[in-house]
Amino acid sequence: MSVSDLIARYPDLMARCLNLSGTTILITIDEEYKITFCTDSLVQQLHLLHKPTGTHLGSVLCPLEEAEFFLTISNSSKKFLPQLFRLCESNDLYRCYTFPIDTGYLVWGDKMGSTENEILESMSHLNNELSDMSRQLSKANRELNKKNQELEWANEKITRISRMDYLTGLSNRSYFQERLKEIFALTKRHGLEFTILLADLDHFKRINDTYGHDMGDKVLQAFGTLLANECRTEDLPARYGGEEFILVFPKTHASGVITFYERIRRELIHSDLLPDPDFVTFSAGITEYEEGGTEISLLKKADDALYEAKKNGRDRYVISS
């Protein structure tokens, strides 16, 4: 591209370039960035005795902060790409545009009102502001992570509370029913077995009437603790309502649950929950999972067996038929 072609392609910008003043410079360079022509204004700005023809452009225009020297070429008539250079041996800053021509490149520069020190100082202030923003953002992220962790802990606590009986610390009825469905599905899928024990504290109303409801609560808590301590990790003890408790024993036959019942019974009788000669007993209905059964039918069998144990004198267990 010739200079006349350049004028035709960029008329507005070239009009500014050719309207040279003491603060405007125009330089042509070859493909190796060696100066082939420059305006007198460059010679005046550099206080030279003659034009620096044949020297490298980098000896005239210096990049800021000792960056590597390169030129950004404006090839589009719609978008000019400015670069900021310092006039060597001075603090004067020039906004420069570079265009391709037949013999190399044309560089046009316009002196800026600010000095390099002022620009760098502004850049330093901007960097400081960015650093402050970065620190504030990091702090905000830490606070957000902390709040998210607290929220996660709170949600876990809410989940535990929603599944727990407030008095005994055992699972509550709704969570037990949720888990029973899972155990039922796994048992059917893998051909396993499990057994349910439904327990009811004997003469609990009499305990409340005789010793007060505080004593009744202590008996419930002690019984719940005893069940939890004697259960395996995979077992599920829960308070079913009032003085009723229910337990699921995965991979366990009724014979194993009977052993568990007898162990709890002995522990309970020999505890000193009530003043002599009274002591606490409980009745239980025991039922095994049967193929083809449902959760409802299984719980009904356990309840019927518990009813038989109560009817037959309490302080005993009955296995459903």
Rank of each mutant, 00 (worst) to 15 (best):
E66A: 12
V107D: 08
P100Q: 13
H50M: 08
L49C: 02
V43A: 05
S114C: 13
S114R: 14
D110L: 12
C88T: 02
L93T: 03
N75A: 12
G58Y: 09
G104C: 11
E65P: 00
L87T: 07
K78V: 01
L48E: 03
K51H: 13
Y97G: 01
K111P: 03
C88E: 09
P63S: 11
P63D: 06
G113P: 01
G104A: 07
C96T: 15
L61D: 03
L106P: 04
R95Y: 04
L46I: 04
K79G: 00
H47F: 09
V43I: 15
P63V: 06
P82L: 11
F99L: 10
L71Y: 04
T103K: 13
P52L: 08
D92S: 11
T55P: 00
K79D: 11
L106D: 12
M112Y: 08
E116S: 07
H47V: 02
S76V: 01
L84V: 14
S74I: 02
C88N: 08
L57W: 01
Y94Q: 08
Y97F: 14
L48S: 04
Q83D: 10
Y94K: 04
C96D: 05
L84W: 09
I101R: 07
M112S: 10
L106W: 09
D92I: 05
D110C: 10
P82F: 12
I73A: 03
E66D: 14
H50W: 05
H47W: 02
I73Q: 03
V107P: 02
A67V: 00
